[in-house]
């Protein structure tokens, strides 16, 4: 601030300061009014993006309503489903690493869960119904065996098609027998070639041509070793049940010893 004791300041302020001329004021105020920025020129940069997002959301909502799909409001009941999935998923993942024998999960449990879900899909559920369904899922999950006890069938139960489940179960039921037959055939092949049972026979040995095996059996028969030929033929049938067997060999086994 100017020093009041300063004689220069005193003299400077001894007369009124010059005032802005009225004509100048009028000119400037008119200029300000004429060139006033438009009110909407300072819209935030995110406003157009937000508007676009709102339009997209509205269209999506209308689409869902017209198509009869569950809206986000309907999906508010989704915790019932999410709880089920989130609790089942770790069990399934742990089963993947479990290579022991398979034990089926109780069949009634998925039915209870799906029942809860079905009631959800039918109508907008009342809060009490949601709680009941959630309780049902929770009880089902808690009553189920631990994750380590869940075996392959429980995973398979999540497959969408029951037919696939049946097919896979049938294949898995046959698989051990097939494996055993293959192993025996490999062993017998090894026995045929080396005279000793090769316990290290690998699946690569399956490449042995069935026809070649049959030729070898014929050779045994030709050489008079009928007993070994019969044994080999039995093993061959076990290993290749669908492979046609020449009549001469068929008669060999059918003929009384």
């Amino acid at each position: 601030m100017p020093d009041p004791n300063d004689s220069l300041s005193e003299l400077y302020h001894s007369t009124p300061s010059p005032r802005s001329p009225a004509a100048l004021d009028e000119t400037i105020l008119k200029m300000a009014a004429d060139h006033a920025p438009r009110a909407n020129r300072r819209t935030p940069g995110w406003l157009p993006l937000a508007s676009a997002a709102s339009v997209v959301g509205l269209v999506s909502l209308l689409f869902h309503q017209m198509a009869g799909l569950p809206t986000s409001t309907d999906r508010a009941h989704a915790p019932t489903v999410i709880v089920q999935e989130s609790q089942l998923q770790p069990a399934a993942s742990r089963v993947d690493g479990f290579t022991g024998k398979v034990r089926a999960a109780p069949q009634a449990e998925p039915i209870e869960v799906s029942g809860a879900l079905q009631s959800h899909n039918d109508e907008a559920m009342e809060p009490e119904a949601i709680i009941t369904a959630a309780d049902a899922v929770s009880k089902t999950l808690s009553a189920a065996p631990s994750a380590a006890q869940y075996q392959q069938p429980s995973i398979e139960s999540q497959e969408p098609s029951a037919r696939k489940i049946e097919e896979r179960s049938a294949m898995e039921a046959v698989a051990p027998a097939l494996k055993q037959q293959r192993a025996e055939s490999r062993s017998h092949e090894s026995l045929r070639a080396t005279g000793e049972l090769d316990m290290d026979a690998t699946p690569a040995d399956d490449a042995v041509n069935a026809e070649q095996w049959l030729e070898n059996i014929k050779d045994l028969l030709t050489n008079g070793d009928k007993e070994r030929a019969i044994i080999q033929l039995q093993h061959f049938r076990a290993a290749y049940p669908e492979h046609p067997i020449p009549d001469e060999l068929t008669r060999l086994t059918d003929a009384p010893n």
């Binding site: 005032r19 802005s20 001329p21 300000a32 006033a36 920025p37």
Partner: peptide, 26 residues
């Protein structure tokens, strides 16, 4: 406010500073 289109805000601003600014310039 004036930047948002409020001319009255500028009028108030101008009345506050016009004389002192003119004195400085003068």
């Amino acid at each position: 406010l004036y930047a948002g289109g409020d001319v009255g805000a500028f009028n108030e601003l101008y009345s506050r500073h016009k004389d002192r600014l003119f004195g400085f310039i003068y």
